[in-house]
Design a protein around this nucleic acid. Structure first.
Lengths: 176, 176
DNA sequence: CTATCAATGAAATTCATTTTCATTAAAGGG
DNA sequence: CCCTTTAATGAAAATGAATTTCATTGATAG
């Protein structure tokens, strides 16, 4: 029986301030980014290198606007459309994954090596990532029962995080 | 062990033309719609009754634009904003469920009595509905492991439907 | 029947996203 | 290294869904 993978400290990637963890990936140098761009048959430009490094070093789940602000700090000449276009291209080539919730602006993250889904607090916006092979297996099973070849899925759980549960209880008792 | 519920005929709700099945609910009369509106502490208007009947009789997963066109046919005076506003209100009160896929316009359906998730064909847009209690149970488990109280979830599976698989194979062999 | 206040319709607005187009610059061959 | 080709860029305009505004209309309680 496969167990749900639970990190020793829940990966709360965010909080009231919408801060998220910074990624601690192995440092990818410029030439690695160039490889990525060349794999897509695109020309290597400073703008694209900047965007990739922003995605790589920055926090996960950034909006296009946020990426634009990050790269603008290093090169004020860079255009918004360039960021948008490249994010779309990266998404189409699956180097980046687009996450959309409700009608909010799309958020982007480097496509994670190990697939994960999201558990989001409806009260404060915290995002926990999780991975559950049992659920994945059942999804495959459902698809195959309908004769589908599964290509991808979106699983977003919404709930109230422990902190917000406490906060609500505190407020409730204060109110009485 | 709970089995995935599979209808005798897969509920293919759509096809190339984006047609979807019409619902065969027990006929709700006007007074039932009035009840729904009154439950929300809203005033009963002809427009709202029209919108409800369009949602009830029409196909599932309609866009606001489609609802507008349906009700326009019966009452050309009706405004787009009225449709939008009422769909939002219905959604907030959980009488209607909003489904968003990618950046496409939101689609609405009467909130299903038995919860179901969607299996969508990325090639032709067909939507199959399914229900899997094992997956639901595992979702609860994951949430509780993070200390969350689960309030809702979105599970969308994407794949290639049997028809499109055949079509692609046919095209491939024709090409050689 | 009348007053009150929500609901409506038309149009304007917002905001994310996408496209246009003139200019700039990457990459490959000489 | 220079030139040519063609893609990439940046600014601005365009698009399109969603939302809001506001003057008018109409539902409902008394």
């Amino acid at each position: 029986m496969e167990l749900t993978k639970i990190p020793t400290l829940p990966k709360f990637t965010g909080g009231e301030s919408r801060e998220e963890r910074t990624l601690s990936r192995e440092p990818l140098d410029k030439s690695a980014f160039k490889q990525v761009i060349r794999k897509m048959n695109l020309k290597v430009t400073d703008q694209r290198l900047l965007i990739l490094s922003a995605l790589h070093e920055g926090r996960t789940h950034v909006t296009a606007q946020e990426v634009y602000e990050i790269v603008s700090a290093k090169d004020p000449e860079i255009g918004f459309a360039t960021v948008y276009r490249f994010l779309r291209t990266l998404t189409e080539h699956h180097f980046v994954t687009e996450v959309r919730m409700g009608g909010l602006p799309a958020r982007y993250e480097m496509t994670p090596q190990s697939h994960h889904d999201h558990l989001t607090c409806v009260s404060c916006g915290k995002i926990c990532e999780f991975e559950n092979h049992e659920i994945e297996a059942l999804q495959e099973k459902v698809a195959s029962q309908f004769g589908f070849e599964l290509t991808s899925h979106v699983l977003e759980l919404y709930g109230v995080c422990p902190d917000c549960q406490k906060r609500k209880k505190a407020k409730a008792s204060f109110g009485n």
